[in-house]
């Protein structure tokens, strides 16, 4: 069994002349405990795949299988959200500005149906390296890196097996990015998580992932091992040009 299997996935938005085919027959699978990367330029459909999995992009066709269970339609049941969680790109936009860290985490835990909320909030904050002193702060009172830690804690609240990471560090400074990437590495070891990570930053994907898929114009042009990325032995022309661009920039 794989953690996640995507087969012939199509996602589109709009109708008629404004119709955009964001993802065109995408195929890949992510093994249990694996860290899989999706790279490509903006508009290539990499985030859209994550959104289709979580039910945020309702117009899709094809097969999505999560831990052996096939997913249908636009809505997901509770069990799904206990298995799959997502961390968004911008920690400034993904936290409610008028809810304290405590409220954010308590509400999430409540929705997941836990009873020992107090103890769990403390444990979650510990897990992501934020002490108790951050518990009653509002998002504007903490830094971008700390906010992203809260977002990761919120994703971990339901004790998921799979984390979908949508550019988790691209809004952060390089020094803070290093801290968050280290945190994600540690959490994956500790909780035996499976990662599906989207990024346009090849070195970040190279650092975090075992395998990756290269996307262009909604299509997956190549699935390769990170070692191929390191040695620059991409097969497809587009992946090669992407590698070349990132080597100099």
């Amino acid at each position: 069994m794989t953690a996640l299997t995507i087969k012939d996935l199509n996602v589109w938005f709009g109708t008629d002349r404004d119709r955009v085919d964001a993802v065109k027959s995408a195929n890949f699978d992510v093994g249990i405990g694996e860290s899989f990367g999706l790279v490509g330029e903006s508009g290539s459909g990499k985030s859209t795949i994550l959104r289709a999995i979580t039910g945020l992009a309702p117009t899709w066709s094809g097969e999505i299988t999560v831990e052996g269970k096939q997913i249908t339609g636009a809505t997901r049941d509770r069990a799904f959200y206990k298995t799959v969680q997502m961390v968004f790109q911008d920690p400034y936009a993904s936290l409610h500005p008028r809810h304290t860290v405590d409220q954010v985490l308590s509400e999430t835990l409540h929705l997941h149906g836990f009873k020992d909320i107090n103890a769990r909030v403390v444990r979650l904050l510990d897990d992501v390296g934020l002490g108790g002193k951050f518990r009653f702060r509002y998002p504007h009172q903490i830094s971008g890196g700390q906010r992203q830690r809260v977002a990761v804690a919120r994703a971990l609240a339901g004790e998921p097996d799979i984390l979908l990471l949508d550019e988790p560090t691209s809004a952060l400074d390089v020094s803070v990015q290093a801290e968050i990437l280290n945190l994600l590495t540690d959490l994956r070891d500790e909780h035996k998580l499976t990662y599906l990570m989207v990024s346009h930053d090849l070195p970040v994907i190279g650092h975090m992932c075992d395998r990756l898929a290269v996307m262009k114009d909604g299509e997956i042009v190549e699935v390769m091992e990170t070692d191929d990325l390191r040695h620059g032995t991409a097969k497809h022309d587009y992946s090669r040009s992407l590698l070349a661009a990132s080597a100099v920039a």
Partner: peptide, 12 residues
Amino acid sequence: SLPRLDQPKKHL
């Protein structure tokens, strides 16, 4: 603190 393709390591 930047990750590098040519120098893989577990922690940055």
